[in-house]
């Protein structure tokens, strides 16, 4: 009897799992809400464990590097020298750029706001490439927003809780980002496939693209701001290419989630222009009574 009951119980649990799997496959929004509700509640407990574990891992990595500290020091000095040269060049370019903008009266895009969060959980399994960060709706994070690390685009927000959000990394199977390749201007879709170098698909002319070319967001989807650095072309194939990402996923500790909204398209009359149905019935301008205004009526 007990054995039969146990089998029935296991059967019921299996059905629950299959039911949830069907809901997941159908992209049920309630499941995503449940996911974020659980993440909201579990965040403090997860962070309490993940911080010391991450600290321990970082300590071990640092210990490995410690043996090569002299060589690293020399390399860093060389790097500083090189960067000083770049800094001077960048300052000169910035001055020149400011002068040219002033001359051309260029209208600058409004500043993009952001919220910075710390990564406290990282899916280590083979099925998903996503991370949880400790900022959410209370910090102004919105679903679909772009997230960047210090070097470039890291992913997009796919779930928002009150105090946590889930970021889908560019390497995930479900990640698709419209990008452009410079200097050729070729456009394509960056498609994650669980490898470290995602595929760049739907290139019109792959011969115009070469290894080392810069890859930036194109902004064609209206979701990501244009011109965010994504990475560089690592290899070129038949109508496709591989992109080496700028974001460092090995050391993804802090991310900035951008608060950006595209400029509203002009597809309807603004408030200054009345709809035709009203404009026919209302006078175009209010007649002015000259006697009521001394400035207009006076003088004679």
């Amino acid at each position: 009897m007990a054995r039969t009951l146990r089998r029935i119980g296991l059967g019921a649990l299996t059905l629950v799992c299959l039911g949830l799997f069907v809901l997941w496959r159908g992209d049920n929004p309630r499941l995503e809400a449940l996911r974020m509700a659980l993440a909201d509640r579990a965040a403090p407990a997860l962070a309490a464990v993940s911080r010391p574990v991450s600290g321990l891992v970082a300590m071990l990595e640092d210990w490995e590097k410690f043996s090569d500290v002299h060589g690293q020091n020399r390399e860093l000095r060389r790097e500083i020298q090189r960067l000083r040269g770049w800094r001077d060049a960048a300052q000169e370019l910035e001055r020149e750029n400011a002068q040219l903008r002033a001359l051309n009266n260029v209208r600058l895009a409004p500043r993009i706001g952001f919220a910075t969060g710390e990564v406290f959980a990282d899916a280590g399994g083979p099925f998903a490439r996503s991370v949880l960060v400790n900022i959410g709706a209370e910090d102004g994070v919105r679903d679909g927003a772009a997230a960047v690390d210090g070097a470039g685009l890291a992913g997009r927000v796919v779930g928002v809780g009150a105090r946590v959000s889930r970021l889908l990394l560019l390497t995930d199977f479900d990640s698709r980002v419209p990008v452009k390749v410079l200097p050729s201007g070729q456009r394509g879709i960056l498609s994650g496939d669980a490898t470290v170098a995602p595929r760049l698909m739907f290139l019109a002319d792959e011969s115009a693209v070469s290894v080392g070319d810069q890859v930036l967001t194109s902004g064609d989807d209206g979701v990501f701001p244009p011109d965010l650095p994504v990475g560089a072309i690592a290899a070129v194939g038949d109508r496709t290419a591989r992109v080496r990402l700028a974001a460092d996923y090995q050391r993804l500790e802090f991310v900035r989630v951008l608060r950006w909204s595209p400029e509203a398209p002009l597809d309807a009359p603004g408030d200054l222009i009345l709809p035709e149905t009203l404009s026919g019935r209302l006078p175009m301008s209010t007649p002015v009574d000259p006697s009521a205004t001394p400035l207009l009526g006076g003088g004679g």
Binding site: L20, L46, F127
Partner: peptide, 19 residues
Amino acid sequence: LARDLLDGGPVGAGALGLL
């Protein structure tokens, strides 16, 4: 299920495999 939900994996499938 908690893991499936937190790591962004296929909800229910991971739990079923574990079970």
